[in-house]
Write a protein that binds this DNA or RNA. Structure first.
Lengths: 203, 203
DNA sequence: GGGAATATTCCC
DNA sequence: GGGAATATTCCC
């Protein structure tokens, strides 16, 4: 094992928690440490045939023999021997396949000699929960479903209430206009009649 | 292996999917099948010391020797040898510890000779998945919650739309009344003036 | 390549 | 006993 090969373990994370190291200095995800370890340890062994290695620039790595890699190496570091599960993890952590004809992967923060960069690599999936921890996932789920709906519903109900109030006011205005119209017509009618009568009297 | 020991495998689930079996007849979770297998297979072996077995009534099971169980049996069925991980899974599927002095667990649907009941056991946790999978009770709740909210929302939106339409119509009526009022006032004014002039001319 | 279910680990 | 992060599997 390389001297700088400090595997990310539960103990590490515990220490990290106890001494209160900030998130930026926390230990890397186990998957990343193990993959880095794996490459470093292969580096030391002078095998005739390389199964996996850093690429020429140390900016990524190549799985030269996927079958041998899966059967011989994966179980030493992980709880499986499936190449596809390894690839799934690489994708989860944002690695990119950078060659079409060989299994070469790169990640900006995964470089030969730069173990300290591993801690800056994060999983793609991470949605911080907005709900208190005492709720079970089912309740959270229900609330989550309702949260958006409630906001929308409340807005709709508010608008609704305002619209009804407006309607009432408009209807009162109309009632007022109707009364006014009647009065004006009455007035006009009287006025016309008045004019007529006045004219007749005067004539 | 017992003759009825049909492990829940990816193949099973695939077949289940292909032939379109309903959710109620889908195969049990791998954890449940494996735990059932484990008990059935132990049953057949006439060991001097029982490490794990069904209880007397077949209504649950007992891990008599947790250490041996963890080291010797767990790795044969699972990807670990931790008793606590096994317990965590039992809890996830709703098993209850039913004795204080030994590791005895029960679940209503986990009974000796009743492998078919396993498929009715569901995980407690339901992930916030927005899209259709098999409907467990939790997911149903969520969907029901959403359905109710949606119905309410749709009704509110409908009422809202109608209220806006009404408002528009009322505002048009008001505009009409305003015009009418002006005309009537104009008319009245002219009428009054007319009367006045006519009277003056006649006098 | 990635969504989602299940499994395993870690911690409270 | 269970929440949550990570790992592994399965499927599209």
């Amino acid at each position: 094992m390389a001297t700088d090969a400090i595997p990310a373990s539960a103990a590490d994370r515990n220490i990290s928690r106890i001494i209160g190291r900030s998130p930026t200095t926390k230990c890397p995800a186990p998957f990343l440490s193990k993959t880095y370890d794996l490459l470093e340890e292969q580096e030391e062994e002078n095998n005739n045939i390389k199964v996996v290695s850093w690429n020429g620039e140390g900016s990524g790595f190549v799985v030269w023999c996927p079958a041998e890699f899966s059967v011989l190496m994966l179980p030493k570091y992980f709880k499986h021997n499936n190449f596809s599960s390894f690839i799934r993890q690489l994708n989860t952590y944002g690695f990119k396949k950078v060659a079409s004809k060989r299994w070469e992967f790169q990640h900006e923060k995964f470089q030969k000699g730069c173990r300290h960069l591993l801690a800056e690599i994060t999983r793609k999936k991470c949605e911080p929960s907005a709900f208190p921890t005492y709720l079970n996932p089912c309740e959270k789920n229900t609330l989550l479903a309702r949260a958006g709906e409630n906001t929308t519903r409340q807005l709709l109900m508010e608008e609704n209430k305002n619209l009804r109030k407006e309607r009432m006011e408009l209807q009162m205005q109309i009632a007022h206009f109707k009364t006014l119209e009647m009065k004006l017509l009455q007035c006009l009618s009287e006025c016309v009649e008045n004019t007529h009568n006045k004219a007749r009297r005067l004539l």
